[in-house]
């Protein structure tokens, strides 16, 4: 299997404001969000980043999506550096997170075309993909309804569809089922498995064990910005449930830190 994503010693720090320092009762001026992180993802797999809140999952995904730049280290997406050629990386990935919003005054139909234009998708291909994806997610009935008037679940589906207008080979998904009802969540997880079947690579971040167990081929456990374990789900678990194994890892790591 081909390594389509190579993360090499990615490090990202944030400066803490005086207010934040006070709030967290710390004197440190710099917070290390991602600490020398390395891992790889292979073509046609679902890779899960598992970790508690504040572990650095979202920062890692933002770094991969070129929204922010690493202090040091690099990540190669299909051999292209997120540091040196972010433009080319952007056309190869689809990134979805709840922070990225769609303009509410537009319709799904308009937004699909707009983002297709930004990705320079051929109009013919665009229309074909639009029809297919809108039908797949039941957006076709709401194609001309302003996003503002859609339900939360429908908004999330539109966001998902818009993030993959350009049929990217790598899809990065931050907390894919957060805030979704069980039905919509199932539609999304089914779709991710379908994409894997098409040979796409999917990177998801989550703190939900069952989601990882259901979806992921391989999993990386991040705690305090560092990759503690990264292997296939079976090998990481070693016969235990992921939940039990995670707490074991967490204890070991926390003990190490203390």
């Amino acid at each position: 299997m081909r390594e389509i994503l190579q993360v090499q010693g990615l490090t990202k720090t944030f400066r803490l404001s005086a207010k934040q320092q006070k709030l967290e009762r710390t004197k440190e001026k710099v917070r290390v969000a991602v600490d020398n992180l390395s891992f790889s993802a292979y073509e046609g797999e679902i890779f899960g980043l598992l970790g508690p809140n504040g572990a650095g999952k979202t920062t890692t995904l933002r770094l991969l999506a070129t929204l922010i730049r690493p202090d040091s280290g690099d990540a190669l997406v299909d051999g292209i550096s997120v540091v040196r050629q972010p433009d080319q990386v952007r056309s190869r990935i689809g990134f979805l997170t709840s922070e990225l919003k769609l303009e509410e005054c537009f319709t799904p139909n308009y937004l699909f075309d707009f983002f297709a234009d930004l990705h320079k998708v051929d109009p013919e291909v665009r229309d074909r993909r639009k029809k297919m994806l809108f039908e797949r997610f039941g957006i076709d009935r709401f194609a001309e309804v302003k996003v503002a008037n859609l339900s939360t679940g429908m908004k999330q589906k539109v966001s998902l569809v818009v993030s993959i207008v350009h049929d990217p080979d790598i899809i990065i998904f931050d907390e894919p089922t957060n805030g979704l009802d069980v039905l919509t969540a199932k539609v999304v997880t089914d779709f991710l498995q379908e994409l894997r079947g098409e040979g796409k690579t999917i990177i998801v971040s989550t703190h939900i064990f069952s989601l990882i167990e259901k979806l992921c081929d391989r999993v990386g456990v991040i705690i305090s910005g560092r990759m503690i374990v990264c292997d296939t789900l079976e090998r990481v678990c070693g016969g235990m449930s992921l939940e039990d194994r995670f707490f074991e890892i967490y204890k070991e790591t926390a003990g190490e830190a203390e």
């Binding site: 999506a65 070129t66 929204l67 433009d87 080319q88 952007r90 056309s91 990935i93 990134f95 922070e99 990225l100 919003k101 769609l102 303009e103 509410e104 983002f115 930004l118 990705h119 320079k120 818009v162």
Partner: peptide, 17 residues
Amino acid sequence: GEKERGTIATMLITPIR
């Protein structure tokens, strides 16, 4: 407004200059 609504980042993850 686009910053406040979080819509500008959606645009900036596309390859547009």
